[in-house]
Design a binder for these strands. Structure first.
Lengths: 392, 392
DNA sequence: CCGCCTAAGACAATCGTTTGTCTAGCTTAT
DNA sequence: ATAAGCTAGACAAACGATTGTCTTAGGCGG
């Protein structure tokens, strides 16, 4: 699998102090609070004994305080229609809820309604930019829809891949999103896979539209006048390698670009550094075949390739144009900055979440697959083919 | 100044026409897996309305099947001591549990035991490398200890920073870890902040040992013979800027390195691209002061700084050594690769989780603060001071 | 033969909500 | 005046597990 990474900047920022206090905190330790407090001020609450959390107010406490029964309070707070409760009572209830900062226990509610509004997200590695970019999209959509999610990373250990979905479900997850993870069998809840490796019944796959990606890259180069193009194939173990290559071959044929075996190089090493692309380009150059452009398997390899080209006294993009893949953040910082095919990872995450929620909500005709369109990011590493192009 | 790199702002984007859309294949029906389905009462799962998950076996179902009462089954499965239950029954129970793939509802258990083994992790941005690296450490420790976690990102929106902790608690979180987030007030559960901005009662802070970091950077340069060192201060709004600077000043004094105002530059812009460091170095160079080394506020700025130095015909590291900060992944890929101070983000996450769990388990004497040691990563951007060092 | 002890498990309360059903008191229509 | 109809809530049964207390039936000794 090729590597995606992201650079972290030192961008920890401070926001202006926010002084809009919400009323909060009833700090008593008696089960029934007779606290006719003043308006909410943030009093430092003294922790006594063990540092257990102060018990939050329950419906029952609230009901006792109001002289009502818990059910009624629940009805008011949930605005259940078709119940006759006078406006005055409603307001009394709501006022008390505010006053005690009542926060319903989602735990209890979930148990009762058999609905948790929670999903599980399974990911190989949390510190990897590719995965977390997808998670970011997932998170956005889920939060917006009022769902929460557990996440877990398995570092490709098969036993964890096997175990976490079960644990998720034990915690009430209503669905599971698996990023770049090969699930082994069907699960009793809806599952959406992002860049998954397998076809399993009941799993919706979200993946890049490889065909489209190939079109963007090749048409771009073609329009710039490139006709002699070198290609780099991904490592066999990368889940995208095969699809991506097949699409390139198909599109090349459509457009009328020739793919020549002697200009095709194959990545083998399991590296996540530019080293990945350096030696293969050196080798390619040693054959002294003419080419004016290179389609790299990913940005990392492209950076290594550019270094190899420069070390061979070829300029990028003057002599050779280079197209990367992924749009890792280093692509923009590199010199020259990289023209690349961006995977809309964030969108893919959002789509995955959207589809999962649809399935959870009972859509029967959910898509089995969802192909997300890539995006061509044009930067400095590609240019029109020039007279002094690389030929020997 | 002409632009050397085009980053997100100035790029041209081509978005292909929306082909195909999402629906590609349609799966007729997902028969929910009935992988058990042997004797006993097989819960017939039919999709009543929504495609809800097959209902998992509960303790009660299991008990019915065994001709026991739920309580007994619970006792066996939890190995509750002090209960007399014959070995034969125990085995019968366990066999049945295996057979039906019984998975206790953590929801119900949590409700009963008032213990969820769940914490909430609050983070500004999920797609940022800094934050997710910390999360990775958090996840490692929590999982190892049998805890799960919700995560949520707030994108610095004050209302979300305010709201999510409450929602976490509504879902039973027993503690909260806030990464790089300015919480406003005390919470009724233990809180650990990583790179937090404030001192709030009840919050344990995990942060980098800035003093140590300054020592590593300055001693390294000092040992290489550098005496004329330029310094870059972080933006005022960055939470680390102040601490880091104070430490540098203190350590410089200890070692005997002079900090000269005319060699000190101040970052102002809120950028996460190398642009951050470029103009300030240009300006510094315009003063024609002699310096042989630069301590950058972070790696991103260092990359911009190096570009500025090179554009001024100065080589790195031959003329000027540059030390970065953070060790973002691009630091290793850059040319020259960056010598930098690595923040052990993963460790910081682990420490945060460890401390939080201790506090949850009732440790009274938890540390108010935890300083994590940085690490010096020596790469190509620093070298011994040479004869041809930058002086004018 | 009777009482006591203990093993083996049943019973029931509880956690905090939700929600269908029921009732006491009042109003209204016939 | 009486039945019918509302109103404003109470009541209680879930949801699925845990856990303290009770019950039953043998087994045993006296």
């Amino acid at each position: 699998m090729h590597t995606h990474f992201r650079v972290s900047g030192g961008r920890r920022t401070i926001r202006p102090a926010q002084t809009g206090g919400i009323l909060n905190g009833i700090e008593d330790d008696s089960p029934i609070s007779k606290h006719q407090g003043s308006s909410g001020k943030n009093m430092a609450q003294e922790k006594k004994g063990p540092s257990r959390a102060a018990k939050p107010v329950s419906l029952k406490i609230l009901a006792d305080y109001l002289g009502l029964c818990p059910a009624t309070v629940s009805l008011v707070l949930n605005n259940v229609p078709g119940r006759s409760i006078p406006q005055e009572t409603r307001e009394r209830v709501r006022a008390a809820a505010r006053k005690f900062n009542y926060q319903p226990s989602l735990l209890a509610r979930s148990l009762r309604k058999q609905r948790t509004f929670t999903v599980g997200v399974l990911v190989p590695e949390l510190s990897d930019g590719y995965h977390t970019m997808v998670m970011s999209g997932i998170g956005d959509h889920l939060m917006q829809e009022g769902y929460f999610y557990f996440s877990a990373h398995h570092r490709h250990k098969p036993d964890l891949v096997e175990e976490y979905p079960r644990l998720f479900m034990g915690r009430g997850a209503e669905g599971i999103i698996a990023i770049d993870t090969a699930l082994e069998h069907e699960l009793p809840v809806p599952v959406v896979a992002v860049a998954g490796h397998k076809q399993i019944a009941g799993v919706t796959n979200v993946r890049l539209d490889h065909k489209h990606a190939a079109e963007l890259a090749l048409r771009h180069l073609h329009q710039l006048g490139h006709r002699h193009i070198a290609f780099m194939r991904g490592q066999p173990f990368s889940s995208d390698s095969n699809d991506r290559w097949k699409s390139i071959v198909a599109v090349a044929r459509e457009i009328g670009i020739e793919i020549r075996p002697e200009l095709t190089i194959q990545l083998e090493k399991d590296l996540t550094s530019p080293e990945l692309g350096y030696p293969v380009i050196q080798q390619l150059l040693s054959h002294k075949r003419r080419f004016t452009a290179l389609v790299s398997f990913n940005d990392i390899a492209a950076i290594g390739a550019i270094r190899a080209l420069r070390d061979a006294n070829l300029s990028v993009p003057e002599d050779v144009s280079v197209v990367g893949f992924d749009d890792i953040s280093a692509a923009a910082y590199h010199n020259p900055s990289l023209t690349t095919i961006r995977q809309p990872l964030h969108d893919m995450g959002q789509s995955a979440a959207r589809i999962l929620l649809q399935r959870i909500q009972g859509f029967k005709d959910y898509p089995k697959e969802c192909a997300v369109p890539p995006e061509l990011i044009i930067r400095e590493s590609t240019a029109p083919v020039s007279g002094r192009s690389h030929s020997r």
